[in-house]
């Protein structure tokens, strides 16, 4: 099986000289759910943004579906980006427009300048957007302004927007860091279910080790711009965690959430 995404010796040096990523390499297969864990400032966010060139890499190679992301420019970058959904910590919806319009923004990458600028979405897209809102449980909020929604609801809209892109890869940058623990579980469930259904890989930056262990099939531990662990959640030892977090392990719950494999629901034990 060929990897969906392949990263080779990726490096990122910011103009101020900060070495955010010091040579990372890994492959992502279509059935993987990867959690990237590490302290703030370890380079997780930069790494995720290099994968779709929101931040240009300094050197190294990112290949997505046989296309080079790092060497793409102009229209090619846009064609790559539209196939990669991304969820942000602060949701980043356009506050002043309706929820349904925010979901439809996921189609802008597939439209020409005129259609996009005037929001001339096809009826197929509109139906799809409504269905996706229904799917994330916000069917009744379609015509409300995005900023009228709670944080958890806004994140669900952001997930619907990303799914609207028909992505071949889903990225999430700290998707639950601004949410309360119960809402966080719903969001993680939703991301897991939607990506599993569409058979696309999910790469998620996480702060909370327990959540990472519960949801991910593979964990990549990042420390000071380098990959220090790449393996299954079960093999992740206390020692390794202490090494990654330099003694400051973050937990979401005092009690432990466990994924019920049949229902895909998480229960607190």
């Amino acid at each position: 099986m060929k990897p969906i995404l392949s990263v080779r010796d990726l490096q990122k040096v910011y103009p101020d000289g900060t070495k955010a990523i010091k040579g990372m390499s890994f492959d992502i297969m279509s059935d993987e759910r990867v959690a990237i864990i590490g302290r703030s400032g370890a380079g997780k966010s930069t790494l995720l943004r290099c994968l779709n060139q929101l931040i240009p890499a300094t050197s190294g190679e990112v290949t997505f579906l046989d296309q080079s992301v790092t060497r793409a420019s102009g229209g090619a970058v846009r064609r790559i980006r539209r196939q990669i959904g991304i969820i942000f910590q602060q949701f980043h919806l356009v506050d002043r427009v309706s929820v349904i319009d925010n979901v439809l923004h996921g189609r802008l990458g597939y439209m020409n300048a005129l259609q996009g600028a005037f929001g001339l979405y096809s009826s197929v897209d509109r139906k799809r957007a409504e269905a996706l809102l229904e799917r994330v449980g916000l069917g009744d909020k379609a015509n409300q302004r995005a900023d009228a929604l709670s944080g958890g609801q806004q994140q669900r809209v952001a997930i619907a927007r990303a799914c609207m892109q028909n992505p071949k890869l889903m990225l999430a940058d700290e998707p639950i860091a601004s949410l309360d623990p119960v809402t966080a579980i719903t969001i993680m469930d939703m991301l897991t279910q939607l990506t599993t259904e569409q058979n696309i890989p999910l790469i998620v930056n996480l702060h909370q080790v327990d959540v990472a262990k519960t949801y991910a099939t593979r964990i990549i531990g990042v420390r000071a711009g380098e990959i220090v662990y790449d393996g299954t959640p079960d093999d992740l030892t206390e020692e390794m965690l202490n090494w990654i977090y330099q003694g400051e392990v973050t937990q979401l719950h005092a009690s432990k959430p466990v994924l019920n494999k049949e229902s895909h629901k998480v229960v607190l034990v």
Binding site: R78, R82, I84, I86, F88, L108, G109, A113, Q165
Partner: peptide, 13 residues
Amino acid sequence: EAMRSTGAGWWSM
């Protein structure tokens, strides 16, 4: 950033 990440063009953004 979020709109750029959807692949939207400049006019659409």
